Amino acid sequence: MSLRKLPEIEAGRLPTVCAFEPDADALERWNAGLSPKAQGENTITILEVIGEDFWTGGGVTAKRVAAALRAIGSQDVIVEVNSPGGDFFEGVAIYNLLRAHPNKVTVRILGLAASAASVIAMAGDEIQIGKAGFLMVHNAWVIAMGNRHDLADAAATMEPFDDAMATLYADRAGVSKAKAAEWMDNETWFNGEQAVEVGLSTGFLPADAVTENKAKAEAMSGVNATRRIDARLAKTGMPRTERRALLADAKGGTHDAALTVKHDADAIAALVSGLFKS
């Protein structure tokens, strides 16, 4: 599929009473230690959450991808993806940047392309996925607070966005939009073989194209534990500022501290247990 035939996705920002959060299940399945074995000057890596990451100060933003594309110039681009997703609107912005690139874009799913990262993956002329990799699609979900008008505004903003995503997945896979919407409604996970079979990927990634940094995966495990708890608490309706203040308190007041010490993890677990019992 040529980039010139890919649709641009238009999506306005959500009302300020809303916020996107990464999917807790995707965070749990994400192996942050996976990366490309080799990369050239025309490579863009998407190996973190999508959007600015509160917990690490990192994250993949449209601004960063735009700068990388400017540096690459008129060359073919390889996009290495291993991400649990994150901010859907940031993912849409990155997708639109890649689809507008004048040369070939090859997306390589090293481990996981979930949620917003799966949107980005659809920008590839060629989409390769590891046989042990996963691609996940679902409806956009947000944490929304406010009065009935705020919530109505949030729903009105999300409806055409989900419709655009269904169209994108349907066009890529060659299925009806109703089928793609069913995938999204069911939060569907495709392994490598399934992604190729249904048409969301064009082929397999060579087995020797991926390397695993176990030290990095271990170092990130504590941060991901915090992210997962944050995502679970978000589904209870707790405001973002309150969630993150509580989690920072449980880690000694440092929001970007990693949960690598057992008593920190125990403190978080005790905190969450108490919240659900109250």
Rank of each mutant, 00 (worst) to 15 (best):
P7M: 08
E8G: 08
I9Y: 04
G12I: 09
P15E: 06
C18T: 15
C18I: 10
E21L: 11
A26T: 05
L27R: 07
E28A: 14
R29C: 05
K37F: 09
Q39M: 13
W55A: 08
G57T: 13
V60C: 08
A68P: 01
R70F: 08
I72P: 06
G73C: 10
D76E: 15
I78T: 09
E80G: 04
G85F: 02
D87Q: 06
E90M: 05
A93M: 09
L98F: 06
A113P: 05
A114W: 00
S115L: 08
G124S: 04
I127A: 03
I129D: 00
K131M: 12
K131G: 10
G133N: 06
V137K: 01
N139D: 10
V142I: 15
M145Y: 11
M145E: 14
G146F: 12
A152G: 11
A156D: 12
M158S: 08
E159L: 14
P160F: 04
A164H: 10
L168T: 03
Y169S: 00
Y169A: 02
G174T: 09
S176I: 11
K177D: 04
A181P: 05
W183Q: 01
E187F: 03
T188R: 14
W189P: 04
W189D: 02
F190H: 02
F190E: 00
G192T: 01
V196I: 13
E197V: 05
S201C: 15
A209G: 02
V210M: 06
N213E: 07
A215M: 13
K216N: 05
T226F: 08
D230W: 04
R232H: 08
K235G: 05
K235T: 11
M238G: 06
R240V: 12
R243Q: 12
L246H: 11
L246D: 04
A248H: 11
A250C: 12
K251A: 09
T260S: 13
H263K: 15
S278E: 09
